[in-house]
Design a protein around this nucleic acid. Structure first.
Length: 458
DNA sequence: GTTGAGCGTT
């Protein structure tokens, strides 16, 4: 972590040792930017350790080789671990590795948290300094609600992530001789939890959903859409979304994603709700991704998620889930847990969503289109269906009816589908099972088919 | 006594 370059952890210090003392002592090795002695928040009693930050990280090499005795105690100096590393138990000696901060990182935001602000700093002064890095769209200095005293931190928003990256090139900035520390702003409101509810609840969230989908594969666009709501931040909060992260989302961006997803989904959900509206949010991506998923909720597929995740996710099923099969859907939405298991449900939903989607894209307008789709999907995945699908499409006509049956190939959607777990369609089937949406189900299937079609036509 | 703390409208 850049911010921790030049930072030493000093353990075992005397309770008598102050920041000043540390600074004086370590100042012999080089310029000390900051020292801190950690104290108990409540009692104020020193906790026996602190930190020293050198302007020049190379000084550490020397310091680390020496023994240090301060205030009569032999203290231990080590490279400071970043908070992230602390929690992840990444204990190797090299501190600067697993960090995604800064330019190279996948996570980007437009807002920066600025700590260590001098009390007398004005927003103007604050802004003027950062304007050197890009267009500043917002400046905030926080004050205590009661005392109106400056709280020592604030925020700077830029119009581009690039500007943020530039600022983050270094952790400490000198505002007229004062040192401030910059970090990416935390998600103010990114609570993984309530997502599905929230999202699905209001159709209004649709907008959010949109953004999401779009950004799905592409972290950068993310913020722009959700704006103030979500900020990704590399640190501890990430923990909040363990599942995702672990699953493969792997990249930080994704990990966070979940939170977002919640939102995004919501949006989708609304789509589904629309029922008619197939609208289409869904994306082309579906066809493939879903299939994979649906097919094998359990084991293998998982990995696939990872890869496809970006696109697929967004769209997928969450949204749908909401509307449709409440049960399943919500599960997925809620998230983390839902992942694999829910996946099943969710997927099914997805199918739906797609369907709708496809409808839009493709044909759209026609009901027929749907029908066709339905058939299609069925067909594609399954042998039998195949034929059916084709027909349907051609007809356009029987959207639901024909489509469905065909797709299933069998009367019993749910069952038949299930029989073919491996297939994407299978999932759809499942979703269909939900019932109300059965019609939609058809869609889902149709969707996939449609896509193929379109492609062919084109 | 050995790995931090501050995160939002003004």
């Amino acid at each position: 972590m850049d911010s921790d370059q030049g930072k030493l952890f000093i353990g075992g210090i005397s309770w008598e040792t102050s920041e000043e003392k540390l600074k004086e002592y370590f100042g012999h090795y080089g310029e000390v930017l900051e020292t801190v002695v950690m104290r108990d928040k409540i009692t104020g009693r020193p906790r026996g350790f602190g930190f020293v930050v050198f302007a020049d990280p190379e000084v550490l090499d020397t310091v680390l080789q020496d023994k240090h005795t301060i205030d009569g105690r032999t203290v231990e100096a080590k490279r400071a671990l970043s908070r992230e590393e602390q929690q992840t138990s990444a204990r190797s000696g090299n501190v600067n590795t697993s960090r995604n901060s800064g330019s190279g990182g996948a996570i980007r935001t437009k807002k920066i948290f600025v700590g260590g602000l001098p009390p007398n700093l004005t927003e103007d002064g604050f802004r003027q300094y950062f304007e050197a890095y890009g267009l500043v769209t917002d400046v905030v200095i926080m004050y205590d609600q009661n005392t109106q005293r400056p709280r020592g931190f604030g925020f700077i928003s830029f119009d581009t992530e690039d500007a943020v990256d530039r600022v983050l090139q270094k952790t400490f900035h000198d505002l007229n001789g004062k040192q401030v520390e910059v970090k990416r702003a935390l998600p103010k409101d990114a609570n993984p939890g309530g997502l599905s509810r929230t999202g699905s609840g209001g159709a209004g969230s649709g907008g959010g959903g949109y953004g999401y989908g779009a950004s799905g594969g592409n972290p950068s666009s993310y913020d722009s859409r959700m704006d103030s709501k979500m900020y990704m931040q590399p640190q501890s909060t990430a923990g909040g979304f363990p599942p995702y992260g672990s699953s493969g989302y792997g990249t930080p961006g994704y990990g966070y994603g979940p939170a977002n997803n919640g939102v995004g989904y919501g949006g989708y959900g609304s789509y589904g709700g629309a029922g008619t509206g197939y609208g289409g949010p869904a994306a082309a991506a579906y066809g493939n991704p879903n299939a994979g998923y649906a097919g094998g909720p359990p084991g293998a597929p998982r990995s696939s998620w990872g890869a496809q995740a970006p696109s697929g996710y967004g769209t997928m099923g969450y949204g749908n889930a909401g509307p449709w099969g409440a049960g399943a859907g919500s599960g997925a939405g809620s998230g983390p847990t839902g992942q694999s298991p829910t996946g099943a449900a969710g997927y099914g939903s997805q199918g739906y969503g797609y369907g709708g989607y496809g409808g839009n894209d493709g044909s759209y307008g026609n009901a027929a289109g749907y029908g066709a789709v339905g058939g299609r999907s069925g067909g594609t995945p399954n042998n039998n269906v195949g034929s059916g699908g084709g027909e349907l499409q051609g007809n356009g006509g029987g959207y639901m009816g024909s489509g469905y049956s065909d797709a299933n190939g069998n009367p019993g959607y749910g069952n038949s589908w299930r029989s073919d777990p491996s297939q994407a369609s299978g999932n759809y089937g499942t979703s269909q099972a939900n019932g109300p949406h059965g019609g939609q189900v058809g869609y889902g299937g149709g969707y996939g088919g449609t896509q193929g079609r379109q492609a062919q036509q084109q």
